[in-house]
Amino acid sequence: MSSAGRALPDVGLVVAARQGDQRALDDVVAASLPLVYNIVGRALRGHADVDDVVQETLVRVIRYLPALNDPAAYRSWLVAIAIRQVRDWETRRRVALNRDAGLDAIHNVPDPASDFAGMTILRLGLTDQRREVAEATRWLDPDDQELLSLWWLEETGEITRNEVADALGLSPGHVAVRIHRMKEQIQSARGVVRALRARPGCPDLETGRAAGRGRG
């Protein structure tokens, strides 16, 4: 169990913060910061807006903490707010792209977050197998990217399965099904990664890739 993931305020501190104790509120925010950064950083895949989304999350924590009915549920509540802010960021980003460019132009706009897997591979010197997994995650849709970020945190002990379920508004059983499907998609994508990196490549695949580049 990661000590960082569990270094969150106890119930007594949350209660004091809800009642207007400014020092307690400062301590609650400080203790929450590492987990929020972990969730947002993974979900946004290293995008430059991570700090902004973390700040928006903590602003909402401060604003709505007095309305939290069950202080013992603070962790789950915090995770849910962070995920909601990530979704809002994704929505704003899609709207901005659609507003500033036509559909044809959008296809040529580099995604600032798309190279996160590449940076991870470069900086960490991953093994071939881990490199495949990192590259395969690029093929996941936004909902599964979000699920992947939470599942990684669960696997490292930062959050629990129930907290993942609460953040997504699903039952633990439904989360288990989605994780299973996500893993299958990653495995399929790893096959695509291997095919794209194969030397010599498949002639049909190379023809398809060349055609795709011709349409760009």
Results as ranks from 00 to 15, higher is better:
Asn98Asp: 12
Arg92Asp: 13
Ala31Cys: 02
Asp143Phe: 06
Arg130Phe: 01
Asp70Trp: 03
Arg197Pro: 02
Ala113Ser: 15
Asp141Lys: 11
Leu8Ile: 15
Ala117Val: 01
Gln19Asn: 13
Arg190Gly: 11
Pro203Trp: 06
Arg130Gly: 00
Ser149Asn: 05
Val15His: 01
Val61His: 07
Gly46Thr: 08
Pro200Thr: 12
Thr207Asn: 11
Gly46Phe: 10
Thr91His: 13
Glu163Tyr: 06
Pro172His: 10
Ser2Leu: 07
Arg213His: 08
Gly201Leu: 07
Asp49His: 07
Trp152Ala: 10
Ile83Lys: 08
Ala73Arg: 13
Leu170Glu: 12
Asp143Val: 08
Met119Asn: 05
Val54Ser: 06
Arg60Cys: 02
Arg87Asp: 10
Leu124Val: 01
Val61Lys: 08
Leu205Tyr: 07
Thr127Ile: 02
Pro172Glu: 10
Leu126Ile: 02
Ala17Glu: 01
Leu25Val: 06
Ala80Trp: 05
Pro200Ser: 13
Gln55Lys: 09
Ala72Asp: 14
Val59Ile: 15
Leu8Val: 15
Gly125Val: 13
Asn98Ile: 08
Thr127Arg: 10
Leu8Ser: 02
Val59Tyr: 09
Leu122Trp: 12
Pro34Ala: 07
Arg178His: 03
Arg138Cys: 09
Leu148Pro: 00
Ala211Cys: 06
Arg18Tyr: 03
Ser149Glu: 03
Gly173Phe: 03
Arg94Leu: 15
Glu158Thr: 00
Gly20Gln: 05
Ala198Thr: 14
His180Tyr: 06
Val36Arg: 03
Arg99Trp: 04
Val193Asn: 09
Asp128Leu: 10
Ala72Arg: 14
Asp166Lys: 11
Leu25Phe: 06
Ala165Tyr: 02
Pro172Ala: 12
Ala43Leu: 07
Leu58His: 02
Ala210Phe: 03
Thr137Tyr: 01
Asp141Trp: 05
Glu184Trp: 00
Gly125Pro: 05
Arg18Pro: 00
Val28His: 04
Gly20Thr: 06
Ile83Thr: 14
Arg99Ala: 11
Gly173Leu: 08
Pro110Asp: 12
Ala165Gln: 01
Pro34Tyr: 07
Val79Asp: 03
Glu206Asp: 13
Gly5Cys: 05
Ala73Thr: 03
Gln55His: 13
Ala105Tyr: 00
Thr207Phe: 07
Ala16Cys: 03
Trp139Ser: 14
Leu196Tyr: 09
Arg161Cys: 02
Arg60Asn: 13
Arg23Leu: 09
His47Glu: 11
Arg209Cys: 05
